[in-house]
């Protein structure tokens, strides 16, 4: 245990020691559209405006709460900042057939893709859902957040507004 604490602390110091490049971009992974077509994540874009990539699953209560809460204000967000939300469902073969009726049944307006074997989740280093990434206009990952508590969407929106104005969010 002690060893682990030491190595974790050491690693975090190493990480701190490196220059903060912020160069991580979206990796190229094949996903499925809700009707089964293959689409590559490298094609994600929003014409130079900010983008949110949210990992969720139909069986994950906090994920559904987050996307439901965001759905209520998504119109306003899009109008004010041009932001686009892409929801990546990690439902596998067991529940992926639920995704389309689930999303449409709730009348969500996000772009939704399915990651049935969690390939994209692994490539983006997501340990658990929900997990949210904020991407700037040039395709760089500039901020991320794990888990969800009621009201977290306000923190996210503050960041989106800054990005839309061209400010740095650091």
């Amino acid at each position: 245990m002690k060893k682990m604490i030491v190595s974790v602390t050491f690693l975090s110091m190493c990480v701190l020691g490196f220059s903060q490049g912020g160069t991580q971009t979206i990796p190229s992974v094949d996903l499925k559209t809700m009707d089964g077509k293959t689409i590559n994540s490298s094609t994600f874009s929003n014409n130079g405006k900010p983008m949110v990539i949210n990992f969720w699953a139909t069986w994950c209560k906090p994920c559904v709460l987050e996307l439901s809460n965001m759905a209520e204000i998504y119109d306003t967000w899009a109008k004010e900042t041009g932001v686009k939300v892409i929801a990546i469902s990690i439902d596998d073969t067991r529940s992926m057939a639920r995704v389309a009726p689930f999303v449409n049944g709730k009348a969500w307006e996000y772009e939704v893709y399915i990651d049935p074997n969690s390939d994209f989740k692994r490539a983006m280093n997501v340990p658990n859902v929900p997990h949210t990434f904020l991407i700037d206009g040039s395709g760089k990952i500039v901020w991320q957040h794990t888990s969800y508590a009621d009201g977290d969407e306000n923190e996210l929106y503050e960041m989106i507004k800054k990005l839309a104005k061209g400010e740095s969010i650091k």
Binding site: V8, S12, V15, L16, F18, S19, Q20, Q24
Partner: peptide
């Protein structure tokens, strides 16, 4: 101790760094 380690780590978030033009990313759980 874990909490201390954690506080240092969360400073490191988004510290994707460059090696020969590439980048290193990752995650961990304990």
């Amino acid at each position: 101790l874990l909490f201390l380690g954690f506080m240092m780590l969360q400073q490191a978030v988004q510290a994707q760094f460059d090696i020969a033009g590439g980048s290193i990313t990752g995650n961990f759980k304990l």
